[in-house]
Design a protein around this nucleic acid. Structure first.
Lengths: 222, 222
DNA sequence: GTCTATAGGATGATAGAC
DNA sequence: GTCTATCATCCTATAGAC
């Protein structure tokens, strides 16, 4: 009895975390209906079957809810990238799989990608912990670029800030165009999703290895 | 005296329109400080030297203010594109100038580009009139693509929905990366702005005309 | 942990005097 | 056209009972 109401049991801890996740689910629903910047704790509480003040047992503030979603989104993105990379050969094939996975993740989680990849919520800045997974995402991408160069699939200049920046710009550009111009459509039906493959071809051509097309063009120039 | 308080004079009309523009200026300032979704009519009125209810002489609602800004942004974008196209040769050089102008416009007007190119304001949808200039933007871009093909600077497949989509994705991707990852930095200092040139090179290489590098690579393949 | 009650603000929009 | 006054909400967050 000494510690019965002092230290929570594992079971209590699990239930608490489970409730947090349910609240985050509801918050996602609300934002999906009303817009990312229109998160409303009263509506979240209603959907989860609680009164609004009860949410403060699970989150210290509205910003903390945003932060929880941000962390969930970043972890999710990292997870699908790892999955994508695990299923294919290293190097260029991995880059391709990662780009496709990122566009798919963005299209299938429009609210999260708005929160992750834009500055659409006025007061909100993610905590260091919530942001951390994205460092791993960048590290994975750099590693895949480096491997593609080592395997002779891309020229050395691809493994640079410029090469990384162009890849990210292409990926984000395709995903953003799909979300803005064809919202509500899934990955398989999206009108702009098919731009992924030519975008990747374009990238691979531009960073073709030495002896590739650019070198050929230079050598055969008049 | 018969019509003195019925039909406004030209001078009155001009002053009215001028006040509208001042209100839009103040609204831009507010959004620049607090975020695009945090537009606040009381603060706008304060900055323009009026009381909040007086704004309703110039705009029917808060949404109408957003719409006025949207139209201004679209007209501005169209104007810089026309300027950019007017100063260079037709075809590929025009495409290059238009892409640079678009990234510059986005970086120099971050609030407007957020409003124009994302869905960051929950309830807001632009009116047909406000949206109209963007149709002209697309028409200009298509024309430049078509001209570049006709001049033999790009292969025929560039003048397609795919060619247009890739160009827009590249442009928006670079601009978006600059705004998200390096906000507050100008066009000339932006760390991601220099991606424009390689992005254009990448595009031109991918859609190189027949007899260009891709054709060469095919012919000299083992 | 959940509730009721409420503090404490902010905000969009309208009515009506001047 | 501009103002004061005010309506009508809506929302985050806290206090304290159970």
């Amino acid at each position: 009895m000494a510690s019965s109401n002092q230290v929570p049991t594992d079971r209590q801890r699990r239930r608490h975390l489970q409730s947090r996740e349910e609240i985050l689910d509801a918050a996602l629903d609300v934002m999906d209906d009303a817009g990312v910047a229109a998160l409303n704790l009263t509506e979240v509480a209603r959907r989860v079957g609680l009164r609004q003040p009860s949410l403060y047992q699970y989150f210290d503030s509205k910003t903390a809810v945003y932060d929880g979603l941000f962390e969930r989104g970043m972890r999710g993105h990292l997870a699908v990238l790892r999955d994508a990379a695990a299923g294919v050969a290293p190097g260029l094939a991995t880059l391709r799989a990662m780009m496709i996975a990122t566009v798919r993740y963005s299209v299938e989680h429009p609210v999260l990608s708005h929160l992750l990849f834009t500055r659409s919520v006025p007061g909100f800045n993610p905590s260091e912990q919530a942001y951390r997974p994205s460092l791993e995402v960048v590290a994975l991408t750099r590693a895949a670029l480096s491997t593609a160069v080592a395997r002779g699939e891309l020229c050395a200049s691809a493994d640079s800030e410029q090469g990384l920046g162009l890849l990210i710009a292409l990926t984000g550009g395709v995903a953003s165009q799909q979300l803005v111009n064809d919202p509500g459509t899934g990955f398989d039906q999206g009108r702009y999703v098919p731009l992924i493959e030519p975008a990747l071809d374009m990238y691979a051509l531009y960073f073709a290895p030495q002896g590739g097309v650019r070198e050929l063009a230079r050598r055969t120039a008049p």
